[in-house]
Nucleic acid binder design. Structure first.
Lengths: 346, 346
DNA sequence: ATGAAAGCGCTAACAA
DNA sequence: TTGTTAGCGCTTTCAT
């Protein structure tokens, strides 16, 4: 059985296409019996109005496009999950694309999506794009009047709705927490030093140190690139400075760091505390279970989808908003307990 | 700037729409200079042909729909990643949907996708659908001439291309391996006893036992539902039988089981070996690192996408195929080393 | 070399 | 109550 259209039904009953259309849309203009037999026939033959034709006519696709940098990253998976669920519940379909942290792929994808395929876009910038700073492809989309929500990795150069994790506060809060547990020499291991997110966390860290009258030392911020050997970098760090805490800016690095320290016979958290970013699936299963910063990925996804769909539904203009989502520190066993006396001074 | 169409360009130059269309598509019918100025103008104004209009005309959307039961499950994330990458490289867009293991949601999603939105579908059945056994919605899609590839959780009731993990062999191989390491009392902990996948693994397990002349005991197969407390179920198991190996049918359960055994002061692997299914991100980070069965998710995704797109590109009919993808056992530290003498007998 | 017209599947204003 | 027509944006014959 081929796909059935209004025309097929019209021909079958010898009526006009518009009669069939009206009958199926339960118009009052159509007589009881005609309506009945047409609807019955349509149901029997699994008639479904062609969404493409509808989209062309209505100039709206009921579809939103999502571009995430890396779907294998649990944070983005969670965001995507939140988006999909929310969009779905409001009758939208989701086209999902992965930029794979590549500028070119992001650019191509934006072009594709802005060619009438989606009503709006939710995205987080690829690392390469952030490093490069070329955002023309995104500005083009905005000029095309396609509403967009950016989350997590955003940029000031584009005016649109944004949802950002309060990464500055997260860096600040985490550092403060470690200081409260009595740590003094806090290092950072970052695999995302090119992204806004990574930079903000480091700034928050810096602020917390400064507030306590501690010096910021560039050597304490270890940058790990794809090809680098984390073990060597950490060894170098530990050899030159008596570190007593490490903040890892992503989950994998946190776990890797933990394992490296364990291999070196260093006790966690007695000798060195570890806090990791992005509370995913790994952290609670390693031992000691890692204290982590949760970014509430699913919530961010829901929020992004709702903001976008609200804008799509709203006639007239809405000002752009930027929502700041706070992180939560999930205390587990890779950090010492907070020193009560010390805390009293805060 | 609003979205620009062929008509806008035609009006601007006082030519016909078809001239513009031809110019943009670099037709030889159009004169050098007209072509040049039109193309230039189009580029300057970011003209992009409307994909929806194209789809309607060509009766093909260059889009494939993917339905996975649970995107938070790393296996499915991997498959999705493979699909997205492959589809993209061949010029296809991916609409991704999550059934959330729900029959209703799967049904709705199928309807949506089959309304002309996609050229083909890749899917894995929701657990509820497998339990219920009602596949009408899927048969409808096939009747609508929409090519489909099912992977992992498939069904005999639908004729289409399929990719299945050789779960029988995986269960068999895993059991055999444990026997070779000297284990005799092997239990299974399953959270997916309703799915074809779960059943096949248990059958493979059974076969391996039988081959060695060992009895299959129903009590050795522990079924964990969502509300059940794994710890209690494992305690009950261990109290009644002197188990020396446990096969966990998903990664989370494997890790949970490991932690429960450790808490009970049971040594892994000396007292009890553990093998888990689906090699994800957790397994290698826990200690002892878990021996796991890898299902090659990304590869399955690539394969599914290629099979589907090959079929879409092919004129004339192709017979349906079912590919059986073998699993790999990744030996780590939660199992004993294979007993060489024992192996000699195999 | 350029344009007119038909048509993909559908809805909606307007006629009958 | 039913039908005719136009049009969403595009390509593709078939004139001109």
């Amino acid at each position: 059985m081929k796909k059935i259209t209004l025309k097929d039904i019209a021909d079958h009953f010898g009526v006009s296409i518009s009669t069939v259309s009206k009958a199926i849309n339960d118009s009052h203009e159509i007589s009881r019996d005609v309506k009945l037999k047409i609807r019955q026939y349509a149901k029997a033959h699994h008639y479904r109005p062609n969404r493409i034709a509808l989209s062309l006519l209505k100039k709206s696709t009921n579809t939103i496009g999502v571009i995430v940098p890396n779907i294998l990253n649990y944070f983005f998976t969670q965001v995507f999950y939140g988006i999909e669920k929310t969009a779905n519940s409001r009758g939208y379909t989701v086209i999902s694309c992965v930029s794979d942290e590549s500028f070119i792929k992001e650019q191509q994808t934006m072009k594709l999506l802005s060619a009438g395929t989606v009503d709006g876009i939710i995205m987080s910038l690829a690392e390469q794009t952030q490093a490069k700073g070329d955002l023309q492809h995104i500005l083009d989309v905005m000029e095309n009047q396609i509403p967009m929500v950016m989350f997590d990795r955003v940029t000031d150069k584009v005016e649109c709705d944004k949802i950002v994790v309060d990464d500055f506060e997260a860096g600040y809060k985490t550092t403060k927490y470690l200081l409260q547990t009595g740590c003094k020499k806090i290092a950072i291991v970052s695999s995302i030093f090119n992204s806004s997110v990574g930079k903000l966390r480091v700034e928050g860290y810096r602020e917390a140190l400064q507030e306590m009258g501690l010096d910021y030392d560039d050597k304490m911020v270890v940058k790990v690139g794809g090809a680098d050997d984390l073990e060597i970098l950490i060894s170098l760090l530990l050899d030159s400075i008596a570190v007593d805490a490490i903040i890892a800016l992503d989950e994998m690095t946190a776990v890797d760091t933990l394992n490296i320290l364990k291999m070196k016979g260093i006790d966690v958290p007695d000798q060195i505390s570890i806090v990791g970013f992005t509370n995913g699936r790994l952290s609670k299963y390693v031992s000691p279970a890692l204290t982590m910063v949760s970014q509430h990925g699913k919530y961010i996804g829901e929020l992004a989808a709702n903001i976008l769909m609200d804008r799509l539904a709203y006639e007239g203009d809405m000002p752009f908003t930027t929502k700041l989502v706070k992180t939560s520190l999930i205390e587990r066993d890779s950090t010492r307990k907070v020193d009560k006396n010390h805390r009293a001074y805060q």
